[in-house]
C-alpha cells in the first residue's frame, strides 16, 4: 500500500517537472502571442510577463497591412504550396519510373541518387545564385520555388522509389490487362495508392519550405515586396525604428500556420521523423 502511494507520488512529481520544463520550453511562443496583444507602453512595462492588461487586436491589422505581413504571408504561401505540388509530382513520377520499370541508364541514375544522398551538399549557394541570375530569374518568386524544388527532389524520389517497390506487381498487371498504358497506370493506379506517402512528403516539404530562410533571403535581396514572412521579419528587426509589438504580431502570423499544421498532424510528423532514423 505504501509502495503504491510512493509510486503515485513519484509519478506526480514527474508530471510536475515535465510540465514546468515544458512551460519554460514554449515560453518564447507564449510571450510572442501575449506581447502581440499589448500596447507599446504595456509592452515596455510588462517585461517578460505574458498577459496584456487589455488585448489590443489592432496590432494584427497593422502588421498585416502597414508592415506588409499580409504580402509576406501570401508570398510564403504561394512559394510553399507550389513547391509542394511540383516536388510531389516530380518525385512521384521519377520514383515510379525507377521502381517499376527497367531501362538503359537506370543504374547510372540510381548511382547519382545514392551519391548525392550521402554527400553533404556543403555550401553551393554561389553557383545556384549564378544559375538563377543567368536564367534571368533573380528577384522572382519563381527562383525560390525552382531552387527549393530542385534541391529536394533526390530525397523525395528516394522515398517514393522505396514506397512503390513495396507494392505488389498484381496491382499493375490487372490494369494492364484492361489495356492501361504508362500514364493511366501511373495516374489511375499508382498515385491513388500512394496517398500516405504523398501526405508525409507533402507535409515535410511544406514545413521546410515555409521555414526556409536562406533561399528567399538570397533571392529577394533586391525586391522587398517579394519577401517571405521569415525574411520580412528579419528585415523588420534591422530597421532603425522597430515597432516591437508589431514585430511580435508579425512573428505570430509567421509561426501560426506551422503550429496549426503540427497540432493537427503531430502523430504523422513524429512517426515520419522517427522512421528516418530507423532506416
Amino acid at each position: 500500500m505504501t509502495e503504491l502511494k510512493g509510486a503515485r507520488a513519484r509519478r506526480g512529481l514527474t508530471h510536475l517537472v515535465l510540465l514546468a520544463i515544458g512551460f519554460a520550453y514554449v515560453y518564447p511562443f507564449l510571450w510572442a502571442v501575449g506581447s502581440s496583444l499589448k500596447t507599446k507602453i504595456d509592452f515596455l512595462d510588462g517585461g517578460l510577463g505574458l498577459l496584456p492588461s487589455r488585448p489590443v487586436w489592432e496590432n494584427y491589422a497593422q502588421a498585416w497591412r502597414e508592415a506588409s505581413f499580409g504580402t509576406y504571408f501570401v508570398n510564403t504561401l504561394v512559394i510553399s504550396v507550389t513547391t509542394v505540388a511540383f516536388t510531389l509530382l516530380f518525385t512521384a513520377m521519377a520514383g515510379y519510373a525507377l521502381a517499376r520499370h527497367t531501362f538503359p541508364g537506370k543504374k547510372i541514375i540510381l548511382g547519382v541518387i545514392l551519391a548525392t544522398y550521402l554527400l553533404p551538399h556543403g555550401y553551393t549557394i554561389v553557383p545556384i545564385y549564378d544559375l538563377i541570375n543567368s536564367l534571368g530569374l533573380l528577384n522572382t518568386l519563381t527562383s525560390v520555388i525552382l531552387a527549393q524544388v530542385g534541391g529536394g527532389l533526390v530525397f523525395g524520389t528516394f522515398m517514393f522509389m522505396a514506397y512503390f517497390s513495396t507494392l505488389p506487381r498484381e496491382l499493375e498487371e490487372a490494369a494492364r490487362v484492361d489495356g492501361a498504358g504508362f500514364n493511366t497506370l501511373f495516374f489511375r493506379v499508382m498515385l491513388p495508392v500512394s496517398k500516405p506517402m504523398m501526405a508525409t512528403l507533402g507535409l515535410f516539404t511544406f514545413i521546410s519550405s515555409w521555414n526556409n530562410f536562406f533561399l528567399p533571403l538570397v533571392f529577394t535581396l533586391g525586391r522587398p515586396e517579394l519577401r517571405t514572412v521569415g525574411v520580412g521579419l528579419y528585415a523588420f528587426t534591422n530597421q532603425t525604428t522597430t515597432d516591437w509589438t508589431l514585430l511580435c504580431a508579425g512573428a505570430v502570423i509567421s509561426l501560426a500556420p506551422i503550429v496549426v499544421v503540427f497540432v493537427v498532424a503531430q502523430r504523422y510528423i513524429v512517426e515520419a521523423i522517427a522512421g528516418a532514423v530507423k532506416a
Binding site: N211, L233, A251, S254
Partner: peptide, 10 residues
C-alpha cells in the same frame, strides 16, 4: 518544427 529564423527573432 517552427522556423528558427522567426523564433530566433523573438
Amino acid at each position: 518544427i517552427t522556423s528558427i529564423a522567426i523564433v530566433g527573432i523573438v
